[in-house]
Amino acid sequence: MTPEYEFHQRDRDIHPPALTPVYKTSVLRSPRIPLFSLQNSLSEVTGPAFSHDELGPLDNDLVLNYARDGKPIGEQTIVHGHVLDGNGRPVRNTLVEVWQANAGGRYRHRNDTYIAPIDPNFGGCGRMLTDDNGYYFFRTVKPGAYPFRNRVNSWRPAHIHFSVFGSGFAQRLITQMYFEGDPLIPHDSIIATIPDKSAAERLIARLDLNASLPLECLAYRFDIVLRGSRQTLFENKLQGG
C-alpha cells in the first residue's frame, strides 16, 4: 500500500553535507557513496509515539530536575518555541529532548575532562512533548562556551542540543540551538558545515523579553521546522494492497 501521505524530499542543500573537512571528525565518518534515494513506504512515514505518562513532572525543568542541595549556578533561561512542519502546521504531541553543558561549559559525561567544574545541582538534560499548537518550553541555565579538539584552539559557541521526532521516522532530526549575539558563532566549525547562510541563521535563538520573567529569568525563542508532507493525490488510497 502507498501511504496516504509522503514527506517532501529533504532539501539537502540546506543541510550540511556528510563530508565537511572543516569539522575533522566528519572526514572518516562520512559515506563516500551517494545516499540511495528511497520513495516513502509505510516504514518511513510511520514512527514512534510518546505519551505524557512516560515523562516526569520536572523533565522540562533543568533548573530543578537535578537539584540536590540548591539550584544550579548560572543565568536562568527559558527556551520556548513551536515545532512546525514544512506546511506551517503544528507538530503535535511530539517528543523534544535537549541536552547541554552547564554554565561553565562542562558536560556531565564520563568522557568530558574539561577543567571547568561539574555543577553538583545541574544534570543538563530535559524532555517534553509539544502541545496541540506544537508549542514547547523548558527552563534551564544558559550553557557556557566549550573548547573542543578540532583545531588547536576551537571553541563551541554556547549551544543546546535538540532531538525531535515528528510523526514519521523520516522526520527524525538532531540539531543545535545557538544564542543571539554570541561572538563565537562566526568562528564555529560545526555551524560552518551548513552551506546555506540563512539555514545557519535559523539555528540562532532570539532573545525574547516578552517571555522573560521580571527579576527571575531571561527567555529565548527557537522554532523548529520538520519536513512537510503531501497527500498522495491520484492514488488508490483506501483499498491499500
Partner: peptide, 28 residues
C-alpha cells in the same frame, strides 16, 4: 513552504540527553 531546520551533529555527549545512564548519571 517553510524550509526544514538544518541538522547538526549530535556530538560526543549525545548520551547526556538521550541515554543519560550511559553518560554516567541517573535523572529520569
Amino acid at each position: 513552504y517553510l524550509p526544514e531546520t538544518a541538522s547538526q551533529t549530535a556530538g560526543p555527549y549525545v548520551h547526556i540527553g538521550l541515554i543519560p545512564k550511559q553518560a554516567g548519571f541517573e535523572i529520569f
